[in-house]
Design a protein around this nucleic acid. Structure first.
Lengths: 336, 336
DNA sequence: CTGAAAGCGCTTACAG
DNA sequence: CTGAAAGCGCTTACAG
C-alpha cells in the first residue's frame, strides 16, 4: 500500500539539503549540530515518518540494544517458575523499553549451553537475564566463562561473582513461621522446592530459626523437599499427611505448590485453615483467587523485574556487579 | 577472557584460503560450491566456533527473521489473557525457533498505534503475532492499512481478511451447556467476558443453541457480561447470585473468571458442584489446581501456539491468508 | 565452481 | 558547525 519513498537517512539528507552525517547526528541529538539545522531536519523526519534502520545502526555501533530473557521449555507439568516468569517479564520489558532496549525471549534446553554463544557471538543480544534454578547453575558457569554480560533472579552459588536480584528468602521463611506460631499453631511442617536450591535452603533456615527462637525443635518427618512443580506439591503434601501426625500448619515454598497442597488437604477431609493452616510463597496474582484465598509471602515481583533490567543496564554502563536483595512481606488472607 | 580472534567471514576466508563469497555461500549451503570446499570451510568454521553476525546478514538480506509477539501491559488486575498468553507463548517460541526465527516481546499501550511502524519500518521484526481483544481491533486495522504481515489469535471482525487461528467458540459454548443439561441442571447462567468480543458472542450462541435445542428459554437475568478480568468474575458472580434466583449452574467464559466466581459462590455458603455447578473455559494449567478442580472447555493451547507461528511463516512464503479453527474439548473434573 | 566488487544503511574520525 | 569518506560484516549479480 503506502510503500514509503523515504526510507533511509540519505533520503532525509536529500530532502533537507544536508549530508547523511548531519542527519545521523541530528537523530542521535549530537551537540555538534546547530539548533536551526536540527529543527529543520527533525521536521522532515517527522513529516515522512522516518524510522531509522535498526540493523544498519546496530552493525555500525556493534551493539544490539536487545537483551535475551532466557526461559526453559514450558512443560505440561506446570512449574512454579512459569507463572513467576510471566509476572516478572512485565517489569523487565517495561524498564527495558523505557531505556531503549528490546527483549528477545530465548527458550533453551536445560542440557544445552550452545545458546549463549549462538546469541551473543552473533550479536543478536548484548546480554541475558535469567532465573536461577538448579540446572541453571551450569549455565551460569558457562556464561561466566564466556565473559557474557548477564544478571540473574535468585541466589547464585557463592563462587560466582555475578549481578543478581533476589528476595530476602531467610526473612520470608521467618515471617511465615512466626506468623503460624503467633496464631497458635503447634505442629508446623515445611514443604519445600528442591533442597539444592539456595533459595529453598534460605527459606528453610529462616523458618527453622523462628522455630528454634520459639523453643521448638524440628522433627524431620515434618520437613519435605520436592521438585518445583504442582505435581510435586501434591506428592509432597500426601507424604506429609501420612508421616507428620498432628500437623496443623504447613509452610509451602511456592504458591503453585500450595494450591496443589490445599487440594490434597481438602481431599483428606481437613479444613483450611481450621484444621491445617497453609502459607505459600511469591504472592502470584492467582493467590487471591484460590479457595480459600492464600496467605503467602509476597515477593515484590514488579520491582524485581525493574531491578533486573535496570541493574543489567547499569552493569553495562559502569561495570559494577550489584547483588541486591529485596524485602518480602507477609500477606494475610484466609488460608492461615 | 577468550576474546575470539575469528569473528568474521573474512577471518574464515583467510584461514581456508578462499574468498568471503565462498564462505558466505558455504554457510548458506549454496549448491554452487563443491563438496570438498564445503567440507574444508565447515571444518574451519566449527573449529573456531564461528557464528555469523546477525545484523550484517539481516542488513544484506533485508529481513530480520524475527517476529514481534505483541502483548498489552501486564496489569495488577490479572486478566485472562495474561495466563493464556504465557501458555501460548511456549508453542509460538518453539515453532519459531525451529524455523530459524527469533521472538521479540513487544509490550504496547492500547491507546497507541505507533509501535507497528516503530518495529516494522525499523526492520526489527518481519511481522507480528497478536491476541485479539476489543481494543486490538483498532490495532488490526492499523496493521492492515500498513500492509504489515501478521496473524491473530481469535476472531477478527469479518471485514478484515487476515490470517488467524481461533478455537471453535460456538462448539465450546454448546459443549458446556449440553453437559450441564445432561447432568440434570435446570437453571443455567452465563457469565461472559466483554459482550463486544466475537469470541464471547460465539460462545454465547453455542450455549444458547444448546438450551433452545433442549426446549429451554433464556432468562436475561441469567446472562451477564463483564470485563475479562478476575475482578470482573467476582462482580459478575455476585450480581448473578442476587438476580438469578434458582440458579444451579454457571458457564463462565474463562478459567480465571471461574476461579473468582467459585470464591463468591463459596462465600455465599453454596457448595460446588452440589448447589452450583461451574464450567470454565480455556483449561489453563491452573484449572486442575483449583478447589474443586475445574471442569472446563479445553482450548488446545500448545497447538494454537504452533499454528500461529507456522501459519505466519507460511503466509510469508506463499502469501496465503489462512483462517483456521481448532477443536475444543470438554474436560470433566469436579466443579461440574 | 570461485572471486572481486558493489551494495545494504548506518556512524564517526578526520578535515575544514 | 558540516561534509566526504571509510568502515561495520554480510550477500549476490556479474564475470570468468
Amino acid at each position: 500500500m503506502n510503500k514509503k519513498q523515504v526510507q533511509t537517512i540519505a533520503d532525509i539528507a536529500r530532502l533537507a539539503n544536508v549530508s547523511k552525517s548531519t542527519v545521523s547526528r541530528v537523530l542521535s541529538n549530537s551537540s555538534l549540530i546547530g539548533e536551526d539545522t536540527k529543527e529543520r531536519v527533525r521536521t522532515i523526519v517527522q513529516q515522512n515518518h522516518f524510522i531509522i534502520n535498526a540493523y544498519a545502526r546496530q552493525l555500525s555501533l556493534k551493539q544490539s540494544r536487545t537483551v535475551g530473557f532466557v526461559v526453559h521449555p514450558f512443560s505440561n507439568d506446570f512449574s512454579i517458575s512459569d507463572l513467576f516468569l510471566l509476572e516478572v517479564m512485565g517489569g523487565i520489558s517495561n524498564t527495558l523499553s523505557a531505556n531503549g532496549y528490546d527483549m528477545l525471549v530465548i527458550q533453551v534446553d536445560p542440557q544445552e549451553t550452545e545458546w549463549a554463544h549462538q546469541y551473543l557471538d552473533s550479536r543478536r543480544v548484548d546480554g541475558f537475564i535469567l532465573l536461577t534454578s538448579t540446572w541453571r547453575q551450569r549455565h551460569i558457569q558457562t556464561l561466566v566463562e564466556m565473559g557474557a554480560p548477564f544478571i540473574v533472579w535468585g541466589v547464585p552459588q557463592m563462587i560466582f561473582h555475578v549481578p543478581s536480584v533476589a528476595g530476602d528468602n531467610f526473612q520470608g521463611g521467618t515471617l511465615a513461621a512466626e506468623y503460624l506460631l503467633r496464631s497458635g499453631r503447634r505442629h508446623l511442617a515445611f514443604l519445600g522446592g528442591p533442597a539444592e536450591e539456595p533459595e529453598i535452603q534460605l527459606r528453610f533456615s529462616g523458618y527453622a530459626a523462628a522455630l528454634t527462637e520459639a523453643g521448638r525443635s524440628i522433627d524431620p518427618a515434618f520437613v519435605i523437599y520436592e521438585a518445583y512443580s504442582s505435581t510435586a506439591g501434591t506428592l509432597g503434601m500426601q507424604r506429609l499427611l501420612e508421616q507428620a501426625s498432628g500437623l496443623d500448619a504447613v509452610f509451602v515454598t511456592s504458591d503453585l505448590m500450595a494450591m496443589a497442597a490445599m487440594q490434597v488437604i481438602h481431599e483428606h477431609g481437613r479444613r483450611i485453615p481450621e484444621d491445617v493452616a497453609v502459607v505459600g510463597y511469591d504472592d502470584l496474582s492467582i493467590a487471591e483467587l484460590t479457595n480459600p484465598p492464600l496467605t503467602t509471602i509476597r515477593q515484590n515481583i514488579p520491582l524485581a523485574g525493574r531491578l533486573l533490567a535496570q541493574n543489567l543496564i547499569n552493569y553495562w554502563r559502569t561495570g559494577q556487579v550489584t547483588k541486591v536483595s529485596i524485602p518480602v512481606e507477609l500477606i494475610i488472607r484466609q488460608s492461615a
